[in-house]
Structure formats: structure tokens, C-alpha cells
Amino acid sequence: MSKTHEGMDVGYVAKLACIDLTEEETTLFQGQLNQVLHYVEQLDELDVSNVESTAHAIPVFNVFRKDVVGTSLNHADVMANAPSSVNGEVRVPKIIDQ
């Protein structure tokens, strides 16, 4: 990963994460995160080409539930949490395209 982070475009990544940053935040984060990424470079010391990755510390398999219908939430409670709703549906600004 050597030095790749120097190209980290905080503005672009923020957009991917759906966050608008102010100019000050962008500059601040750029510096701070580059520092963090520089620190993370120490992992380059390790050769892990033959190491399995760990997604779950304590792995188990096949945790299923039966296909049985349970209770759903009260509709009024769901609507009460929604910041905006119309006729039992959650209202969002017009979706323009994909």
C-alpha cells in the first residue's frame, strides 16, 4: 500500500459516504487522516501472503432461523419515528433517477 494514501481525496471519499464537509474540515481531515494512514503503513512490515483473514473472531456456521412469521412493529410507532410521512408511507424528496 506504499504511499497510496497520499492521493487520498477526502472530498471524494466524503461524497461516497454522503457527508458534506466544509473547506476547513476537508483540510483538517486530510492532514489528520494522512497521519493515521502513515501510521498504518507499519503493517507493510508483515508478510501475510499465507495468512487467512479473520472476519469473525470466533467463527460459527449455519446460524439459521425457521421460516416462521413473527410479530412486526406497530405501524403507528413506525410512522411516529419517520420525520415525514404521507398515507402510511415514508416521504422522501422526489427520486430523480438511479
Binding site: 432461523r65 416462521v68 412469521v69 413473527g70 410479530t71 412486526s72 412493529l73 405501524h75 413506525v78 410512522m79 398515507n87 402510511g88 408511507e89 415514508v90
Partner: peptide, 17 residues
């Protein structure tokens, strides 16, 4: 989740956390 799958039900009645 255990919410029912039903086509054409009243909106947002088969929902859970």
C-alpha cells in the same frame, strides 16, 4: 427477519427494526 412476506398489504405494516 420474521416479518411476513405478503404482496399488496397496507404499506409499512410488515416491518420491524
Amino acid at each position: 427477519c420474521s416479518c411476513k412476506y405478503e404482496y399488496g398489504a397496507e404499506p409499512n405494516t410488515h416491518v420491524c427494526p
